[in-house]
């Protein structure tokens, strides 16, 4: 069998995939067989918007080291910016 525990979260942002830019509403993180990366297992991350169909997906297949480095890099980038600068509440009001 090819699958293990999936961590699924709701999130807010945008991603660029086959259909172009789209609002991302969900991410799934799981260790599984990759589609493309040449090793038996990878850390796979799917950023999706189920409401826009299966093609609204940005997919990553990372080695374990790369996934940990990515987590650290996100933490460092966030730490270097003022708290709240990229928070959802900073979005300008719709006009």
């Amino acid at each position: 069998m090819c699958t293990y525990l999936t961590e699924k979260i709701a999130l807010e942002g945008s991603g660029k995939g086959t259909p172009g830019w789209f609002p991302v509403t969900q991410a799934a993180v799981y260790v599984d067989h990759p589609q493309h990366h040449p090793q038996e297992h990878t850390v796979n991350i799917d950023f999706t918007n189920p409401g826009r169909g299966p093609s609204a997906r940005v997919a990553l297949e990372l080695t374990e080291e790369a996934a940990r480095d990515l987590v650290d890099a996100i933490q460092r980038a966030l730490a270097s910016a003022p708290d709240g600068l990229a928070a959802a509440g900073r979005r300008p009001a719709a006009v």
Partner: peptide
């Protein structure tokens, strides 16, 4: 049924979810 017309990898991810 779940992913008509989608590429196989996108369809697989959607059905897995």
């Amino acid at each position: 049924r779940q992913a008509p017309g989608a590429s196989p990898d996108d369809a697989a991810a959607a059905v897995r979810a």
